[in-house]
Amino acid sequence: MAGYNEAFRDIPGTTVFDATQSRLGYHLNQFCMSLMKAENRAAFKADERAYLETFPMTPEQRQAVLDRDYNRMIALGGNIYFLAKIGATDGFSFQNLASKMTGMPEDEYKAMMVAGGRPIRGNRSKSDKDS
């Protein structure tokens, strides 16, 4: 199997967490999981670089964490359920993370959600933009 992302490529703006992503992101996600403990959150906040060095992640993954570049973290194997723990450690709401990933100012993103969410038309699939 070529990976689920091949099968899902018709869905815009979406990376599914398949075997390829899971293998790539194992240690990145393990770092995120460590943030479930208050003492680890404190250690990470005290010295982010030093804390990240304790996990066998790639330099690109460490940089993406330091940059809080969530789309890059996803591309490098991060799973959103785990990545969200970074945002929570920073004291941000999930909507703040979502606004970062979508490149929208947070108030604009929140207003879109209150107005009913991202419209389905044109966002359901790439091949059928009119549905």
Partner: peptide, 17 residues
């Protein structure tokens, strides 16, 4: 029910579905 948390499609909602 409908939601997407990740990527540039975050915020996807499908009320009719």
């Amino acid at each position: 029910l409908s939601h997407q948390l990740d990527g540039t499609r975050a915020g996807h909602i499908n009320k009719p579905f």
